[in-house]
Amino acid sequence: MTNDPKPSDLNRRQFIIRSTKAGAALAATWAVGYGLYDTVGPSSQAVRQTSVSLADFSVSGQQPRMCVARGADRKKSLAYALKAVGGLESYIKSGDRVLLKVNAAFATPPMLSATTHPILVTELCRRCFQAGAANVIVTDNPINDPTSCFTLTGIAEAARSAGAELIVPRQQSFRPITVPNARLIRDWPLLYEPFRQVNKVIGITPVKDHHRSGASMVMKNWYGLLGGRRNIFHQEVHTIIKELAMMVRPTLVILDGTTTMMRNGPTGGSLSDLKSTNTMIVSTDQVAADAFGATLLGKNLSDLPFIAQAQEAGIGTADYQSLNPQMVDIS
């Protein structure tokens, strides 16, 4: 053997190197092909995302409680009402991550009372942090353009000033959900991104008339968690409200009846649609809260079939008196 490579040796070496590379490419080709081989083809919904479900966010081991505070000042009413149901501290523990589901459905000013009042948002965020919350997220999937909704309703600024995080929905924020025993919410996009990070959920919304369902209150407020072509559900509005209540088991709900939109809901638009009813309802039972809210609208249960339906589904009680609600008068 000599160390001088002869041309044929060189060729042989090159040949071996090349063959090795070809062999490696061959192996890689078949490995990839084998790994990706698909004999079945795509399913009918080609990109079927994995379904999600929502946890029960209510605080276990507590009797359902409810308080109705009467007063014109939202901050004060909220404070009294929270105190009457045992203080926010009994619901929010240190380190909790809280989701506030506000109603920011329309790009209208706070004055029109079509959306959750920013003062209430700031105050609730502040109190959550006070109770030890590690993080507070404010979110909604509005009807109108999300960014202008959050800005014009003052909710964006309210959340920011209180140090809460605002999640504006994007296409990626949604994941399909199927609510057990539900007929309509099956494999439907849910605004899931905010839920990923929280362990407590508070719904906070004003009392409003609603053209289609009769009233938009706590249960209807969860509608803002749905994505997709949700207006199709208006064809069966009472069922969808019931199923929304089945979907979300909140820690607490806050129904703001300081100003009630009596007619032309849910958008309103004129101050003459509004009426000062000076009431703040805080409850652990969303059905009871709505049942009480109905009285502010001057409606009874037969006007609002979804309340009875929700009770039937075992979500709560329409008979709010049975909760012995504390009535607090602030003057």
């Binding site: 070809a22 078949w30 990839v32 092909g33 081989y37 698909d38």
Partner: peptide
């Protein structure tokens, strides 16, 4: 065709696996 659909879908559908035969022979 096989390569294109692998890139877009990350699957190699049924008969497109024949493309691997062409690739293999081309490599050689």
């Amino acid at each position: 065709v096989g390569l294109g659909t692998i890139l877009t879908t990350r699957t190699l559908y049924k008969g497109l696996v024949w493309g691997l035969v062409t690739i293999s022979l081309t490599l050689l």
